Simulated scan of single mutants.
Amino acid sequence: MHWLKLKITQFPTHQNKMESRVTRCVTLLSGGLDSMLAIRIMQDQGIEVEALNFKTMFTCCQDLSAQAATRLGVRLTVVSQEDDYLELIKKPRFGYGKGANPCVDCRIYMFERAHKFMEQIGADFIVSGEVVGQRPMSQKRRDLDVISHQSGLEDLLLRPLSAKLLLPTLPERNGLVDRDRLYAFQGRSRKGLIRLAKAYGLDEVPTPSTGCALTESLFGRKVHDLI
C-alpha cells in the first residue's frame, strides 16, 4: 500500500500532557460538507483527528480534501488504490448504481484500509460523514450496517451526523464520545447541515458532488464496455 503524507498543521488539542492520552480518531475526508462537519464535531469534543483521503483513478477531489484539511487544521494522509481495486470494479459483490459505481463495495474497501491505518497509528475508532438516507446507493440504513460489518469495523465506525438514528458505537458506550452532542440528520436535505456548518464557522459550503467519475452515466457505460 502506498501512503503519501501531506504536511498539514494539526488541529491543536486542549489536553494537558500530564493527563491521560488524548482520544484519537481517523476520519475519512473527501472535502465535502459532511466529512468536514464530522471532523468539526469530533474536534468540538476535544478528540484528535487524523484525516484520510482515498485516491483512485476515478476520483477528482484530492485538491478539495487538502484544502479542507488546511481549513480544519488536521493532518491529511492520502491513500492510493491497490491492484485489487479494479477487480472490485469488475465484480462488485453488492452491485452497481446508475453508472459503473459499486458504492457499497467501494466504501467497504476504503474502510478496510482505514481500519489498517487506524491500527497503524494507534487511533481509537473511525469516523465517517455518512448521513442516513442521503445517497440511495450506499447510505440507506441497511447499507450502512452492511458496510460496518463487511469492513470488519462493526461498532468502531461512528457516523456522528446520524448517530442518534443508529445504535451506540463502542466509543460512545465507552465514554470516548458524548452521544448527546451528536446528531440525527437523515435524508437528502442540506438545510440543517448548512446551519450546523455556519455554527461551526464553515461559511464556504462545498457544492454537493460524489467526486467519482463512475457515478456518471456516460462514463459508466464506457467503463462497462471496457470491463
Rank of each mutant, 00 (worst) to 15 (best):
H2Y: 07
W3F: 06
W3I: 14
I8F: 02
Q10V: 05
Q10Y: 07
F11G: 09
H14L: 14
Q15T: 14
K17G: 07
M18R: 14
V22K: 14
R24I: 02
C25H: 07
V26S: 04
V26K: 08
S30M: 08
L33T: 02
D34W: 01
S35V: 09
M36A: 11
M36L: 05
A38T: 03
I39H: 02
R40V: 03
Q43Y: 01
G46V: 04
G46M: 08
I47Q: 07
A51C: 03
L52G: 01
N53H: 13
K55Q: 10
K55Y: 05
F58P: 03
C60P: 01
Q62P: 08
L64P: 01
L64M: 15
S65V: 10
S65Q: 12
A68G: 09
T70R: 15
T70C: 14
R71E: 15
R71D: 15
L76T: 13
T77N: 14
V79Y: 09
S80R: 15
Q81I: 08
E82L: 11
Y85S: 08
E87K: 15
L88I: 11
I89G: 08
K90N: 07
K90H: 05
K91L: 09
F94I: 02
Y96V: 02
Y96W: 12
Y96H: 07
G97V: 00
G99S: 11
A100K: 06
C103E: 07
V104T: 06
V104H: 00
D105H: 01
C106M: 03
R107A: 00
Y109I: 12
R113I: 03
H115D: 13
K116Q: 11
E119R: 13
Q120C: 04
Q120R: 10
D124C: 07
D124E: 10
V127M: 02
V127Y: 01
E130H: 00
V131Q: 04
V131S: 01
V132Q: 09
G133W: 00
G133S: 10
R135W: 01
P136I: 00
M137D: 01
S138W: 00
K140G: 14
K140A: 03
R142A: 11
D143P: 00
D143H: 15
L144K: 03
L144N: 06
D145V: 08
D145F: 04
S148W: 00
S151R: 12
L153G: 09
L156I: 05
L157D: 06
P160I: 10
L165A: 05
T169P: 03
L170S: 11
P171G: 11
R173M: 15
N174M: 13
V177W: 02
V177C: 06
V177P: 03
D178E: 14
R181D: 12
R181V: 00
Y183T: 04
A184L: 08
Q186I: 00
G187C: 01
K191N: 14
G192P: 06
G192Q: 06
G192R: 07
Y200N: 12
Y200C: 13
G201A: 14
L202W: 06
E204T: 12
V205M: 04
V205L: 04
G211Y: 00
L214P: 08
G220H: 03
